[in-house]
Write a protein that binds this DNA or RNA. Structure first.
Length: 296
DNA sequence: AGGCAGGTGGCCA
DNA sequence: TGGCCACCTGCC
């Protein structure tokens, strides 16, 4: 059995709360985190790192990493969680002064932030996401890792497969992982990436508009999935993913009934500005919370 | 038991 | 451009 590192105290510039940590790790940006119901400890995987994260009293953030992490692994954890991000400065640039609903959503999730995930695996996870709910997306990602991924440690959890590895699988093999019609798109995208190594790095380095146009050329990647991959996996904070939840928010709370998706995307980017993606995350989290409450 | 789910792409006017 | 529909699969 591979041992865990000792628990280290992390020092985010802006603290998490219980609900913002949950919303950050397990709110639909990433699909490889699970919360232990008894301890409230999150366990998850990204890149080649498997970690546990928990919040102690006074919102002290603790983490440990499977194996014998180096300083660069701890730095990777800090980058992943964006611990050094100037959250106050970012949020202050959102139009909360003139947007009461946005202000309500921000106040409900202080410290909620966007993860800094690896771009290739973020694209993969969101290719799985079409017309699926979060629990189902998680299962697909877990199946992909278990079937095609490399172990992070001997007998340990597995990383998500590389695109090159996926390209060596057949569509039928992928379908057997429960991907459904997404298997064809994932296979075709993998084939394209395999024949053009470095394309994802190139895309990641482009400004948002160019990156969006390029990533949306992959089969199965439309405007929404492109925006999610760029926002959650490439730090394009001006991306504004318009999904069913955000459509509801904009229709109901911004009185934009009758607007089509393209118009809603443009409204979001124009109204919310260079950090539109951050605003999206607050609005998304707040709306899901409201819907959850309504069920109770 | 049928409809729906963090969409996309193809087809038709 | 805008509307409609098929597409896998599992869960309510």
């Amino acid at each position: 059995m591979t041992p865990w590192s000792s628990w280290e105290t992390l020092t985010p510039k802006t603290p998490f709360t219980e609900s913002t940590l949950r919303e950050t790790l397990d709110g639909g940006q990433a699909f490889r985190w699970e919360c232990d119901a008894n301890t409230g400890c999150y366990q998850g995987t990204w890149g080649r790192i498997h970690a546990q994260i928990r919040l102690e009293k006074y919102n002290t953030l603790k983490a440990r990493i499977l194996g014998e992490p180096t300083q660069s692994d701890w730095d990777a954890l800090s980058d992943y969680l964006r611990l050094d991000e100037d959250w106050d400065a970012i949020v202050d640039q959102l139009p909360w002064r003139s947007d009461a609903h946005l202000k309500t959503a921000i106040d409900a999730f202080p410290g909620l932030r966007l993860l800094n995930q690896p771009f290739p695996e973020t694209l993969l996870c969101f290719l799985c996401s079409a017309t699926k709910q979060i629990p189902q997306i998680k299962i697909m990602c877990a199946n992909l890792a278990n079937a095609l991924g490399d172990p992070i440690a001997p007998d340990g959890p597995k990383a998500l497969p590389t695109w090159e590895r996926i390209a060596t699988a057949s569509e039928d093999e992928l379908r057997a992982l429960g991907l459904g019609f997404r298997a064809k798109n994932i296979k075709k995208t993998a084939d394209q990436i395999a024949t053009d190594p470095g394309v994802l790095e190139t895309i990641e380095a482009l400004p948002y508009v160019e990156a969006h146009a390029r990533v949306a050329q992959f089969p199965g990647v439309g405007s929404k999935i492109a925006d999610c991959a760029l926002l959650f996996g490439a730090r394009k904070y001006d991306a504004f993913p318009v999904d069913t939840w955000i459509i509801k928010v904009l229709e109901k709370r911004y009185q934009l009934e009758g607007w089509n998706k393209t118009q809603l995307e443009q409204f979001g980017r124009i109204h919310l500005g260079p950090y539109a993606g951050y605003a999206q995350q607050f609005l998304f989290a707040y709306e899901r919370k409201a819907a959850h409450k309504a069920v109770e």
